[in-house]
């Protein structure tokens, strides 16, 4: 059977593309990197891939607001292609800046009439790099987190605070929530590093095939990436690998 093909989208300021490539390769996927200009210019097309990733970074410097300019570019220049890609059953993963992009492009959550949810500045008013515990919502339809109940991953962002009106939040498919090591999602800062509503760290669409999160699963593939690997019992893999394995397996078996 042909290898699963993953596209990692690059834009000016993308900076997590190499570790994301490594993660998908470890999960058994073939990976190609493409600059947004190549997609817009038609040198390549989403239709050639089963998985599309918008990785972390500071696209266009996060000027105006995180991911905003790339979000508009996707919406205005590739909107149709993305819609067809989703209808065809493709998977989309947005990590950190990719999450901001998908939200502001109205791709996740899908907008009926205008963007109702956003990711805004952390309550601490600063960029923070720290490790966080996540609780996976068992009711979530997300295919990326199948069989995963909890994760420990690093975050590194200044604009990760989910904000929306209650009815928008109620309709969300929440995949992951910030928690403490015991799994308590009400633990507050710094366990919830940004003040995100309902402690939300990641969401997906109704099909579970479009998934975004602020933490970086691609930064915890090997055990020695864990901040306390020198003092805890070694494990086979980092918690993040499961996300990528799930995605690749799902494509193989569908």
């Amino acid at each position: 059977m042909a290898k699963v093909k993953t596209l990692i989208l690059r834009a000016p300021g993308t900076n997590c593309d190499e570790e994301t490539t490594f993660a998908f390769e470890q999960a058994g996927s073939a990976v190609e990197l493409a600059h947004i200009n190549r997609l817009v210019g038609g040198d390549t097309s989403l239709s050639r891939y089963q998985i599309v990733v918008i990785p972390g970074g500071f696209t266009y410097g996060d000027d105006i607001s995180g991911g905003k300019i790339l979000a508009n570019e996707l919406k205005l220049k590739l909107g149709g292609d993305i819609q067809r890609f989703v209808e065809r059953g493709g998977l989309i993963l947005g990590i950190c800046n990719g999450f901001q992009v998908l939200v502001k492009a109205g791709i996740l959550p899908p907008v009926e009439n205008g963007q109702r949810l956003t990711l805004s500045g952390n309550d601490s008013n600063r960029f923070e790099c720290r490790w966080v515990y996540l609780q996976i919502d068992p009711k979530s339809p997300c295919i990326f987190t199948k069989g995963i109940s909890a994760m420990y991953l690093p975050i590194a962002h200044g604009e990760g605070k989910i904000m929306a009106e209650k009815e928008t939040l109620d309709k969300l498919n929440v995949v992951a929530r910030y928690a403490d090591e015991k799994g308590d999602i009400k633990a507050g800062y710094p366990h919830n590093p940004n003040g995100s509503a309902d402690n939300i760290a990641g969401i997906c669409d109704a099909t579970g095939r479009i998934f975004s999160l602020m933490p970086h699963p691609e930064r915890f593939i090997r055990w020695t990436q864990h901040p306390r690997w020198t003092r805890e019992a070694p494990r086979q893999h980092g918690d993040g690998l499961g996300i990528f394995l799930n995605a690749v397996d799902w494509v193989k078996h569908s």
């Binding site: 923070e128 790099c129 720290r130 930064r219 990436q225 901040p227 306390r228």
Partner: peptide, 23 residues
Amino acid sequence: VIRQYDHEVQGGSILKPLSGINN
């Protein structure tokens, strides 16, 4: 200061600037 630097990007960090039971 350290937390406001991204010391994890590129995924290569083996010993980080902060370590211990509470990182």
